[in-house]
Amino acid sequence: MNAKTIDRIATFCFYSIAVLIVGILLGLVSFILIRGLGVIDWSFVTEAPGSVLTGGGGVGPQLFNSFYLLILTMLITIPLGLGGGIYMAEYAKPGKLTDFIRLSIEVLSSLPSIVVGLFGLLVFVQYTGWGYSMLAGALALTVFNLPLMVRIVEQSLTAVPREQREASFALGVTHWQTILKILIPAALPGIITGTILASGRVFGEAAALLFTAGMTSPPLDFTNWDFTSPTSPLNPFRPASTLAVHIWKVNAEGIIPDAKEVASGASALLVIAILIFNLVARWLGRFIHARLTSS
């Protein structure tokens, strides 16, 4: 066989791989959406799950919990991530400490989420005495989301052209003011896009939540806005199962009669939410960039 023929065969193989991968994704997404969209209706999105014996009902509380937990996590992660990212981009000098922080970022972001969940169980659930709670879940999610956030902020800041920094210094503006008033605004599109993509990951996480936020959701009263009440949806100290945890639970337990339907519907909701996160992240990044650079 001559080199030309081998080259043609190889090219064919590469195309097959590409087509296979695109096919897998299309298959996955269309399967999820086709199976799930038949289940999703208004009551599925809003109502609480039915009893274990009869099945039925929806995933309303789980959907709410997913979003609420995401907000709680981001409230903790964003300030810490901004701080850490600013430090790494602006202050960190080459040396032991910086290497150490980098190692921590690397290790924390590649730890298995179940291990992070167990750490959360030990520290945020048992040690603090909160029991299974949203706050414990949010803190556990922070553990692996924070290194991601730090990296996003650091990369966005270092991507700001050196000239912007120099211009500000040359006006006698101090380093800290330059960071706050010049660098952060210039890095904002990157930070926002990265944050929304990270949110998608938090939104779909389940393993780290099983033993921190718990697998059950107490009966919620959506008219109760008292943070301290156990039936208030806003109480951060109540246990909460999210959409992703719910999918796992109904499948693993296999008790409720309509487990497959609930899981399909919930999976479709999850995938749609993450699609939206992706699209919004791209669109918002582009939009802000356009706002900043054109008239």
């Binding site: 052209p161 000239e163 912007q164 120099e166 211009a167 500000s168 040359a170 010049i182 605004p185 210039a186 900043l292 650079t293």
Partner: peptide, 9 residues
Amino acid sequence: FQRPNPFSK
């Protein structure tokens, strides 16, 4: 500076 460097404001 050498290259014009207005802030993105």
